[in-house]
Simulated scan of single mutants.
Amino acid sequence: MDKIWAFASYNLWSQFAPPVGQEYFHCDMKRGFARARQREPGVAAVKDLDNTPQRIGILAQQGVYEFHQNPKLFSRKDAVEQVAEILQLSQESTPVQERVILILSNYQQHPILLGKNIIKLNRGDEGFPPPIIMKQGNYLFNFFAAIDCIFAEPDGTIHILDFKTGKSEFDRRQAYLYLLAASYLYPSQPAIASFYNLETGKQSDPLRATADTLKAFKIEMSLIAQRHQKDLKRYRDAPAEFDIIFPPNPGSNCSYCPFNSICEFSSVILEVAA
C-alpha cells in the first residue's frame, strides 16, 4: 500500500474548531504556522520551543510514569524529591518546578492508578503513536490518538484515562476519539474513557460510545483530514494567500500563541509598535 499522507487527530480537530466556549479565542492562522509552514527555519525554531503549560503537562505525565515504574516510591517520604531528580526538574524554570512539585505531591497522596491493571502507561515523550489506518467510503487516512494510559477494569472493560493539568475544561470530543481508537485497538472489548486533572484532582465521569456515535466521529475525522489536505495544497499552490487560507483572529489570545513573535497580525506586535 502506498504511504498515506492524509491524517486526522484530536489536536488537528481542535485547531479547526476549539472546545465550546473558546470560539472567541480561536485563530486558524495558528494551524497554518504549525501545519503548513512548520519546516520554515523561523517557524520551526518557535514551534519547537516548549511553553510553560506544555512543559508542566509533559513533566507531570513523566512523573506519574516514574512513580509506577517503582511503586515503592509511594511510601517513601522523599519520593517527590526522588522523582524530581529523575525528571531533572532543577533545570526547569521556577514556575514549572513549583507546579510540578505540587503535582507530584498530589499524586503521591492520591495515586489514581495504584492497584489498577495497567495495560499501557506512556511516559509522555514517546512522540507520535503508530497511526490507525481508517477508511471512510473510498477515502483512506491515518488517525493518530496519543493515549496517556489504558487499564482494564475488573469486568474486562478497557478504560482509557487522559491526564490533564491547568484549568482547561475537559473536551468530550477527545474522549470519543479515544473510544474510536479503542474500537480498532481492542475491537472485542467494551471501552470507556475519562479525564483526570493531576493538579486539581478533578475527575470526569467515564464516557461510553455507541456504534453510531463512533461512526459519526469517524466521518468527522475523514472530513477534517480531507479539508486539511486541501488547505495544505492551496497554500503550496499560492503561498501569498496564507492569511486567506488560514485567516487570523488577533486579540488577547495572541499573548498565549507561540507564533506571536513572527506573526504580522499578532496583537502583541501591534501593541508594541503602537
Rank of each mutant, 00 (worst) to 15 (best):
M221T: 06
H228K: 03
T200A: 04
L185P: 01
F195R: 04
F217L: 13
A209V: 11
I244P: 02
F242N: 12
L214S: 01
I245G: 01
P248S: 12
N249Q: 07
M221V: 01
A191M: 03
L180Q: 01
Q229I: 08
L232D: 06
L214K: 04
M221G: 06
T200C: 09
I244E: 11
Y235V: 13
I224W: 06
P187W: 07
S204T: 13
Y235W: 15
K215M: 14
S188Q: 12
C257N: 05
G251I: 07
Y196V: 01
I244A: 10
K202W: 03
A225L: 04
A193T: 07
L207H: 06
K233S: 14
I192Q: 14
F242L: 15
L214M: 07
A225Y: 02
I219R: 10
A193S: 14
C257L: 06
D237M: 06
D237T: 06
P258K: 15
P248T: 09
L179A: 07
A191E: 09
P248R: 13
K202G: 02
N249T: 03
L185V: 11
Q226L: 15
P206W: 13
S255R: 14
N197P: 03
F242E: 14
A193C: 00
S204F: 00
A225C: 00
R236P: 02
P247L: 12
M221N: 10
P239F: 09
Q226R: 14
A240I: 04
Y186E: 02
A191Q: 05
Y196K: 00
Y184T: 05
G251E: 03
A193Q: 09
N253S: 12
N197V: 08
K233T: 15
Y196C: 00
F246E: 14
L223F: 11
F195C: 10
S255E: 14
P258T: 11
A216Y: 06
S204N: 05
F217R: 13
L214V: 05
A191L: 07
S255D: 09
K230F: 04
G201W: 05
A238G: 01
A181F: 02
P239D: 08
D243C: 05
I192M: 15
H228V: 11
Q226E: 15
H228I: 02
L179F: 05
T210Q: 11
R234H: 10
I244V: 06
K218I: 01
A225S: 07
R208T: 15
L185S: 08
L179K: 00
K218L: 06
I192W: 12
I245P: 00
R227F: 04
C257A: 02
K215R: 10
Q189W: 01
L179P: 01
D231W: 12
E220Q: 07
R208I: 04
I219N: 03
N249S: 05
S194P: 05
I219L: 12
L198D: 04
F217D: 14
A216G: 09
D205Q: 13
N253K: 08
Y256M: 12
I224R: 13
Y186A: 01
F242V: 14
